[in-house]
Design a protein around this nucleic acid. Structure first.
Length: 164
DNA sequence: GCCAACGTTGGC
DNA sequence: GCCAACGTTGGC
């Protein structure tokens, strides 16, 4: 059982889209390190944070579940697909994917800027300088910490109230 | 195997 | 839209 973080641009595919559809093949990943995690490490019942990237408020918006073992990404074989890769031979597929299932929305987005404020998360791959991976592992302690943020208000930018 | 050029990611 | 950081490509 492992934990993950997976990025998607909400204009392409958002957590709302996943909720609507229930499940989805996480296709189009074209990075070898991410491919290796799909193929070699990810297992059904693993959980993953759904991260919205390249948008007004980048951050973690909820949780999904890995539903299937890795299998070859069919979009790599489809010439009319934007993720087509002529070098991926169906007899020896280069790219893999897993199906994911909707689990839950967070009550609020845990933004990238908020995540950066927690020393407990300093080892999170997402926060390391220049990180561009779209699929990455999350340590169990970091997973629990982020899940725990949902319990409290934790709105650091909210105006302070006078106390009398 | 080196490395410059290029394309992509993704925050801001 | 800008641009830093990074991965990939391809000439040599």
């Amino acid at each position: 059982m492992q934990y993950w973080l997976m990025k998607s641009e909400p204009s392409e595919f958002s957590l709302d889209d996943l909720q609507r559809k229930g499940r989805e093949p996480w296709d189009g990943v074209r990075n070898y390190q991410a491919r290796n995690w799909f193929r070699d490490q990810m297992q059904p019942k693993d959980l993953a944070f759904f991260y919205h990237s390249n948008c007004a408020m980048p951050g973690i918006v909820g949780v999904m579940e890995i539903l299937t073992p890795a299998y070859p990404d069919p979009t790599a074989f489809a010439p009319d697909n934007p993720h087509y890769d002529p070098k991926s031979d169906p007899a020896q597929p280069r790219w893999y994917l897993v199906d994911v299932g909707y689990v839950a929305h967070f009550p609020r987005t845990v933004s990238l800027s908020e995540l950066r404020t927690y020393p407990a998360l300093s080892e999170l791959a997402l926060l390391r300088r220049g990180n561009r991976l779209s699929v990455m592992p999350v340590a169990a302690a970091a997973w629990a910490f982020i899940m725990g943020l949902q319990a409290g208000p934790a709105l650091p930018s909210a105006p302070l109230r006078e106390r009398h």
